[in-house]
Design a protein around this nucleic acid. Sequence first.
DNA 1: TATATTTTTATTGTATACAATCAAATTGAG
DNA 2: CTCAATTTGATTGTATACAATAAAAATATA
Lengths: 223, 223
Amino acid sequence: MNAYNFIKDSIIQGKYQPGMRLTEEYLAQELKISRTPIREAIKQLKTEGLIIPLKKGVSVRDFTKEDIRQIYDLRTLLEGYSAAQAAASRTEEDLIKLTEANLLYEEAINQYVEGDFDQIVKIVEMNQLFHDAIINASKNQHIHFHISRVVVVPIVFRSFYWYSKEKLKRSLDYHKIILQAIESQDTERARIAMHEHIYQGRDQVLTHLEDLKNDVSYKEETK
Amino acid sequence: MNAYNFIKDSIIQGKYQPGMRLTEEYLAQELKISRTPIREAIKQLKTEGLIIPLKKGVSVRDFTKEDIRQIYDLRTLLEGYSAAQAAASRTEEDLIKLTEANLLYEEAINQYVEGDFDQIVKIVEMNQLFHDAIINASKNQHIHFHISRVVVVPIVFRSFYWYSKEKLKRSLDYHKIILQAIESQDTERARIAMHEHIYQGRDQVLTHLEDLKNDVSYKEETK
DNA sequence: TATATTTTTATTGTATACAATCAAATTGAG
DNA sequence: CTCAATTTGATTGTATACAATAAAAATATA
């Protein structure tokens, strides 16, 4: 794994906590490589908005409640559009891929027992696979670029910890509704179902944001 | 001016033509600096999608007609949303800034005589100032990040060459309609006017894309 | 003691050397 | 002559040394 992916994953999974200062030297030692590749990774993460520049060094971005709201508003807009376009332009092959992705998502949810970190990683991955398949079916390559930058937010990943199995199943139900709408080429149904699906995700994050910020592992490493 | 801005401007203004291969060595000599800062700039431009990686080196991205369509669809979506939000949340201060920006745009257009490169740069700048003021009034910081990546496309810049004074004035008229809608907090009027404004820009680009690709200066440098 | 000034230290910015890798040219075998 | 193997050359990837700069600490001055 390269420096960029290592640092990014560490941020997303919460190993490097929001507000934590990162220096090139520190990361170089951590990965046992020189500063050069570290600097590149930092530059990229800065461009993506996952870390923010300090006077010297950078710090892991801390997303506020307002940030979450704004990001989810955007995500709703983009993914809603994406779902509508997918409904309009989907091929038979797209449908097969969407169905497959959703089956994998279902499987991952069924195998989940509360607190299993690796399985959460899997669920997040499979969820993303489904959303990516929709973007793909929408036939707009550029939208993928933007959604991926809206979605990759540490708090979103960590929010999956707080999902009950029931809530995960409801999320799966929405995937099925969206898939159905795309299959029957009902663009507005697809858009609205996606809107609702994303907003339910947002509510989940907002509800547990306080819990997240009071999380022990969170506080200990940032002070 | 740093390496990043130099290369970016060169691409946007057409000095480095679509498809042109860029090597670190070449750019280092061009800017009379070492490869290190060049590498950073390239990484960033790659992340932004303005250049695409080759097996060795990179090349300036060539946007197809389909790219333009997709990008403008996205831009319409984002800026339409932005205008609607601005209409909902604008303050008196926002209105003052919007009015000022539009006056500067009007001024720049009035002073324009066909083919004046520096004045085109000015017009593009002032146009952007107005659009930025809307995003600002929308109170969603994150949307700026995305729109700036949708808008910064070399062809958009170069398309201004083909604007007649008449078309520029029509563009200004739309700014005024949008401003009026934002002032009277008419969210849907603001959104629709922005949609129309952006799509007229798209049509302008698409109409002259062929001319652009047949441009002498374009062909000579890319072969 | 409080504040301005200097010195020290930590950290990033840049240049450069060398290693790794990929593409093109060259050579050799059938 | 054609195609595969090898060599050569161009280019990027990485490490590292040193310069520039900003923050922190120490010192001096009121």
